[in-house]
Design a protein around this nucleic acid. Structure first.
Length: 424
DNA sequence: TCTGGGGTCCTAGGACCC
DNA sequence: TCTGGGGTCCTAGGACCC
């Protein structure tokens, strides 16, 4: 019988911000999304104040000040680096690790003799070496391990580690869990399940399988089986090859000029092409979308998507920019105030295992392109991102630039922003 | 009057995750 | 003034093939 553990960092982004600001211990901390739009992480104290996940920051500004909430823009350079350190520790200590997200990892602990001891040791080491508190849930399936983790987090008496085992114990936890809190049950399915009279995870587990299969597809059925201890999801040790890449942003303010949209789309194309080369892949298709704000019904609404198939798969930034701008021309309509744009690359395949075609450009040209991109990426790595840029992305007036007024220093990944200790 | 059976591929839309 | 960004998978339906 397989045994899964889910290691989950407590209030991860808020914990990261607090790491270099110990005076914030015990104070409410929130982290805002890109563009300082809404709340994406809260410390325990902030949760206790009733600040919901996803709360629009501007609506809560007064409350933040009144309650002395420390507010941060998101600092993904910092969170990503701390995450990598934590995952390294887990990989040292556990036989099988699947990095599931920036703040979670599944472990396969089948065959480990003293589970509790190992989990407590992992928790202790992550706390001492990195400074981030984690909770660990143990169970026979991934979905149950998720639930066990919730118990570990919510009930302090377990000391951050909880094993969900034994039919009675499983039933008690399922009965005490709202169905919408089960991993894999989103708001839509939750509403349909409530309508069917299934309010808890236990009710859901007891529904006829045929109904679940019909109404919630095989994905829902898989969730249901996992709740009854049948493991359907295995540990994915190696991350699967990516199938798409996206760079999208909301703008600092609304944008109606084609020229500004072109600059924004071109710079997103540059960023997504960089990601593509970091993956060692090439893209077959470029997709662009633009949209007016969702939340303002008084403004004229328009959203559009356009897809351009590249002549041959490529990771060459100028070609990707050209395709993205062509796609933008298909989407754009004058007279609208746009709030967001994005560039997506699809049909990714490894650059080294490339299907050659009759339409291929001559191989010399392809090599020159690769050499150019290699030199560009190396220069930007060495001298800082943006050291070498494309002219179209460097216009001085950039209303589409995102707001990020309260970002903490990149303490661990940028020489200029290292924390200082002692007198200046 | 009457119009098959079996398959693949692509896309859009919906649902979910963190 | 002001509501994130980045992914995955499933299904249905249409186009197309023999």
């Amino acid at each position: 019988m397989p045994l899964f553990a889910l290691v989950d960092c407590n209030n991860f982004y808020a914990s990261c911000e607090r790491l270099f600001r110990p005076e914030l211990t015990g104070r409410p901390v929130v982290v805002l999304s890109n563009n300082d739009g809404c709340v994406i992480a809260r410390s325990a104290e902030a949760k206790a104040l009733g600040i919901p996940m996803g709360a629009p920051a501007f609506q809560w500004e007064r409350r933040f000040r009144a309650s002395g909430v420390a507010v941060f823009s998101s600092n993904f350079a910092l969170y990503g680096d701390l995450s990598a350190r934590i995952m390294t520790i887990l990989e040292d200590m556990a036989p099988g690790v699947e990095v599931y997200s920036i703040d979670e990892a599944f472990l396969d602990l089948s065959g480990v003799a003293d589970l509790e001891a190992l989990c407590r040791a992992m928790r202790e080491r992550v706390l001492r070496w990195v400074g981030i508190p984690v909770s660990i849930g143990l169970a026979s399936t991934k979905t149950l391990a998720k639930l066990a983790n919730r118990v570990a987090k919510k009930q302090p008496r377990h000391g951050g580690v909880f094993a969900l085992e034994g039919a009675q114990s499983v039933e008690a936890v399922l009965g005490a869990t709202e169905v919408g809190d089960v991993w894999g049950i989103g708001p839509r399915h939750a509403r349909r399940l409530w309508a069917r009279g299934a309010r808890t995870a236990l009710d859901f587990a007891r529904l006829p399988r045929a109904w679940v299969r019909r109404e919630m597809s095989v994905v829902g059925l898989c969730t249901q089986l996992e709740l009854s201890g049948v493991s359907c999801l295995s540990l994915e040790r190696a991350p699967a090859a990516r199938k798409s890449l996206l760079c999208s942003r909301s703008f600092g303010r609304l944008v109606s000029e084609r020229g500004h949209l072109r600059e924004a789309v071109a710079s997103y194309a540059v960023r997504v092409a960089e990601k593509l080369r970091r993956e060692g892949a090439e893209a077959a298709t470029v997709q662009v979308f633009i949209a007016t704000p969702r939340h303002r019904e008084n403004l004229p609404q328009h959203s559009a998507t356009a897809t351009i198939a590249l002549r041959t798969p490529t990771a060459h930034t100028p070609e990707i920019i050209r395709a993205a701008l062509r796609a933008l021309d298909q989407c754009f309509r004058s007279g609208y105030e746009y709030q967001k744009a994005g560039v997506m690359l699809l049909g990714l395949a490894p650059a080294c295992a490339r299907q050659i075609s009759l339409l291929d450009q001559d191989p010399g040209e392809r090599r020159r392109q690769q050499a150019l991109m290699g030199a560009l990426d190396a220069a930007n790595r060495r001298f800082g991102n943006g050291a070498l840029r494309y002219a179209i992305t460097t216009a001085p007036d950039r209303p589409w630039h995102m707001r990020q007024l309260r970002r903490s220093p990149r303490y661990t990944t940028n020489w200029g922003e290292l924390p200082r200790v002692g007198a200046e």
